[in-house]
């Protein structure tokens, strides 16, 4: 249990650093209009142990989003998206629950439940995270199209990096 907290703590720091040092600078910025943002930090919420209470997941999501916001200078936007995706995480997990159920203290990773499971899980999770992010970022239904175009681009690229992360580190928990 303790090792899980330490591991997740380290992951938190490293993911935020990766996000703000690497992915923030590769936003494709054309004429001040970025078509996509790569979301890497949600991996932290994605990989929390399955049995983590929703209260804790939502709270950690808030802290994570707020930390990223401080560096993106967009207070509340990443946090709002993270709180939302953290909240629906348990629902996604329930829907995708394999026939045998989840093991105690397991994390929803590729190595535990296979790439098939992980891909679907990450796709649903990331889609909602990014959709809420751009809804808050653009903040008006007037630019409905823009919300969807940017969500689409960002979704594909972010999901790619989330999957690559699984293949690179193949974490068990």
């Amino acid at each position: 249990m303790n090792s899980s907290i330490i591991k997740n703590g380290i992951r938190f720091v490293l993911l935020v650093l990766a996000q703000i040092l690497i992915f923030k600078s590769i936003d494709l910025d054309t004429n001040g209009f970025s078509y996509f943002t790569i979301f890497f930090y949600p991996i932290f919420i994605l990989l929390l142990p399955i049995r983590t209470p929703t209260v804790l997941v939502v709270f950690l999501g808030f802290i994570l989003g707020l930390t990223v916001d401080v560096f993106y200078d967009s207070l509340g936007v990443h946090a709002g998206a993270s709180v939302f995706s953290a909240f629906i995480r348990s629902t996604i997990l329930n829907v995708l629950e394999p026939r045998g159920g989840y093991e105690v203290n397991a994390s929803p990773t590729k190595s535990n439940y296979g790439i098939n499971f992980f891909f679907r899980y990450a796709a649903i999770f990331m889609f909602f995270h990014i959709l809420v992010y751009f809804s808050l970022e653009i903040f008006t239904p007037v630019y409905f199209n823009e919300i969807f175009i940017r969500t689409g681009f960002s979704f594909i690229l972010s999901l790619l990096f989330v999957i690559i992360f699984q293949y690179l580190f193949n974490p068990k928990e």
């Binding site: 939502v58 207070l75 936007v77 946090a79």
Partner: peptide
């Protein structure tokens, strides 16, 4: 969830 979303919206 609702509390924190409200806080986020306020911050935004």
């Amino acid at each position: 969830f609702f509390l924190l979303e409200a806080v986020c919206l306020y911050l935004v």
